[in-house]
Amino acid sequence: MMNTIKHHLTEPLLMGYAAGTLPEAFNLVVATHISMCDSCRAALSAYDAVGGEVMLDAEPIAMAEDALAATMALIANAPSVDAMPKPPLRNGIFPAPLHDYVDGDLVSVKWRRVGGGVSQMILQTSNDASVRLLRIPAGTAVPDHGHGGMELTLVLQGAFVDETDRFGTGDVEVANEDMNHTPVAEAGMDCICLAATDAPLRFTGILPRFAQRFVGI
């Protein structure tokens, strides 16, 4: 639980997450940020409530005649859920949803260098968008890049600064397609981010183009 978070999810992202219509890669960033952020957790519960009201208002469609009996049979065959979900045991920096995708914490990440000292690990999701962990060494810049689509960058450790602001742990930057930026990791600590995009990044400049070949996006 952090109270220092300054950059939050946007309303459309919260609504999309509540509706269940975002790409899986974005859902992972949203779920991870909400794990760290009270105000977005609260906002999500309200957007879930909007979904409930939309559902209540849907024109009812009759169920099959034996539907209730069939459901009771499903219930009879299901293992009962007795235990409450265990409270999360966090001794690392990855909130539970990210921990699930990495299958571990920071030490379990299989980094691959992508040039300029930056390393990444691409996480497996549906292919309508992609999500990766990025490790940017303290004081290092990520190549200036534009976006064909939307990019979400959530800071898990350290901080980065770009043309728009400073992004510390728990902050999420929502960049749209007309934004070009050069994030620089703050001195003192490597910056670890979770970044999702629904389009290939376009790097500008010669060295970054070289780097892009390695990134493979």
């Binding site: 899986e24 992972l28 779920a31 909400i34 999500l44 879930d48 409930g52 009201e53 939309v54 949803p97």
Partner: peptide, 25 residues
């Protein structure tokens, strides 16, 4: 109503979109 909606939504993602649904901690 909200609770049932979230159950239905998660089932929809699972069945219709065939995706995992990362949930907040």
């Amino acid at each position: 109503s909200t609770w049932i909606f979230t159950i239905a939504r998660n089932r929809k993602i699972d069945i219709l979109r065939k995706q995992r649904r990362p949930e907040p901690e």
